[in-house]
Design a protein around this nucleic acid. Structure first.
Lengths: 236, 236
DNA sequence: CGGCCGGTTGATCTTCCTCAAATAAAGTGG
DNA sequence: CCACTTTATTTGAGGAAGATCAACCGGCCG
């Protein structure tokens, strides 16, 4: 795979994504190198960068690689014929994109922020997995994690209102946010705009905005500016 | 695994589930025997039966087997602390339950109707998969299918109203329903009650009922009794 | 400065939930 | 087989949550 020349969604390419074969992992990446999955990337992966707004993979195109996010945020979504979009997950440092041994992307992935990634070819994954039960299990667990993540989201769609969904999301996000989004003052940065949150939580961006206001009003969260937050209440 | 003595959910056990080791597949099952997955069950599986309302697996309990539905309908769901339930899928003849190599059930599965199943131990699956890339890919594809099914449901939760969701469900159900639920008159039988449909579609059972009435009124579906239907319109 | 984009807030309207009642279907015991 | 209980389904009325449409604010960029 080569990210150079990948189509950009809305704007013309301002900076060309770079691709760098077999570079050494940087110190910042070291913390991710502790499973058989990470071994896979450290040995067979190559580095790729994608600029904000760039597209990593496009629904329907051949899927030849497995990606590991090193830094930045990715939105993975499906886009309906009528243009409506649903974001299934925001992938961050340490997350994999393109699990499952199916040869066509079944979703679209876009860079919410500038990205650094590592990529390995699926062939390499298959070849290694054939003789490594640990790797197989690790990948399988990740895939199950994806499944549970969808199920949690479904559950919240069916039974929670806008404020609850947003608060749950913010809780999870602060828990899982990579260091790059954390500050000393305990505030976490939201890399995505309100519309993306809406498309993830099944709400309009207006409703998301109102839910933010309501949570601030009842002191469930604290905010600095429009994109830095901290969850205050421990309960609902 | 042994289904005898499995706890029943609401009522006392009226008929004891039976378990029968290593029986030959019946002629009715033959049609399912055509993939490496099915080979797995034909060689290493044993037959089990569960009565309507019986529980196949309980969230949190150790998961030691992989199940193949031979006949009947299963609901796979998670149940929240407050008793709210979400049904992720209805499994029917040919569907697998318990994919993913994780040792604890992450959901609850109950028999919507009387069931016949085949079960294999996960150990056997692992052992065979170790030397059978075809089997690995087949299982992986099934798991991805699950994932996509959840994503479709999420999409419909976010963007479709009650009637659209129900109609989509009925379309999919007629397409995928096993022969046992089909009649000569093109009508398909819904094995589950309105409440189950609601818990699957993220609606109350009253809303499901109203959606049925509305679809009948505008001749999008035809119904005979309360549980046999046929989709009439080809479009929305 | 003016336009654009993202975010906030308000007013109105639609959809679906909630509560309630009536009806239908299915099993139970005599 | 019938009266009776229980459960599933349908339908109605009222209310709440969120979508839609619209106005406004503030920052950023040409």
């Amino acid at each position: 795979m080569d990210f150079v020349g990948f189509p950009e969604r809305t704007k013309p390419v301002r900076h060309h994504p770079l691709s760098e074969r077999m570079s050494r992992p940087s110190p910042a990446e070291e913390s991710l190198w502790h499973t058989s999955v990470s071994m896979l990337f450290s040995r067979h992966g190559y580095l790729a960068q994608v600029r904000q707004g760039g597209i990593l993979c496009l629904h329907g195109e051949p899927a030849e690689t497995l990606l590991l996010v090193i830094s930045g945020t990715v939105r993975c979504c499906t886009i309906a014929e009528d243009g409506r979009r649903h974001i299934f997950r925001f992938a961050q440092a340490g997350d994999l994109i393109g699990l499952s041994e199916v040869d066509i992307w079944h979703f679209t992935a876009e860079a919410v922020t500038d990205l650094r990634l590592r990529a390995v070819s699926r062939e390499a994954v298959q070849a290694l997995a054939a003789n490594d039960p640990g790797l197989r299990q690790a990948l399988s667990r990740r895939l199950l994690g994806e499944l549970r993540c969808r199920e949690n989201l479904l559950m919240s769609f069916a039974h929670q209102n806008a404020e609850e969904r947003l608060l749950d999301f913010l809780r999870r996000f602060s828990r899982e946010a990579p260091p790059e989004l954390r500050a000393e003052d305990q505030l976490v940065t939201l890399p995505m705009p309100r519309r993306d949150l809406g498309d993830h939580l099944g709400l309009t961006f207006e409703t998301v905005s109102r839910a933010f206001s309501a949570l601030k009003r009842r002191a469930a969260i604290e905010m600095r500016g429009t994109d830095r937050f901290r969850v205050l209440s421990a309960q609902l």
